[in-house]
Computed example of a mutant assay.
Amino acid sequence: MNPNHASPVLVDVRGDSVRAMSWIPTAITPSEFEEALAQFASHRVLTSCTVYRRSYLCTRKLAANGINAMN
Rank of each mutant, 00 (worst) to 15 (best):
V9I: 11
L37G: 05
S42N: 10
C58W: 12
M1V: 11
L10Y: 01
P30E: 01
I28E: 01
F40P: 03
M70D: 15
V9W: 01
S31R: 13
P3M: 11
A64W: 12
I24P: 01
L10A: 02
R60H: 00
R14S: 03
E35M: 08
I67N: 05
Y52Q: 13
S55G: 08
A64Q: 15
H43S: 09
N68A: 15
R53W: 00
T50L: 10
V11R: 06
P3V: 07
A41G: 00
C58T: 14
R60P: 00
A38G: 03
E34N: 12
W23Y: 13
Q39S: 00
T26H: 05
P25N: 05
S31T: 12
R19T: 07
W23D: 11
K61F: 10
L46P: 02
N65Y: 10
C49D: 03
N71P: 07
D12N: 06
W23S: 04
A6Y: 05
D12G: 03
P30N: 03
S22H: 08
P30F: 01
T26A: 08
R14V: 08
T50I: 00
P8I: 05
A69F: 06
D12A: 03
D16E: 13
R53E: 08
T59S: 13
Y52L: 04
P3R: 09
R53N: 05
N4Q: 08
P30L: 02
A38R: 02
E32G: 06
T50S: 15
V51L: 11
V51I: 09
V11E: 04
A36S: 15
N2H: 11
E32D: 13
C49S: 08
A41I: 07
C49G: 07
N2V: 08
S7D: 06
L57N: 07
V18R: 10
S48T: 09
E32W: 02
N68G: 01
S22C: 07
R60G: 08
V45W: 02
P25D: 04
G15P: 00
P3G: 08
S7C: 01
Y56F: 12
E34F: 13
V9E: 01
F40Y: 15
L57G: 00
V18P: 00
A36V: 00
V18G: 00
L46H: 15
E32R: 09
N65A: 11
N65R: 13
V51H: 11
Q39E: 11
P25S: 06
A63M: 14
E34Q: 14
V11F: 04
P8R: 05
D16W: 01
R14I: 06
R53Q: 12
A6Q: 03
S7K: 13
T26M: 07
H5C: 09
M21R: 15
S55P: 05
V11L: 11
N4S: 10
L10E: 01
S17E: 14
A20S: 04
C58Q: 09
A6E: 10
F40A: 03
S48H: 12
R54I: 02
N65D: 13
T47L: 15
E32I: 03
R19C: 06
A64M: 14
A27M: 03
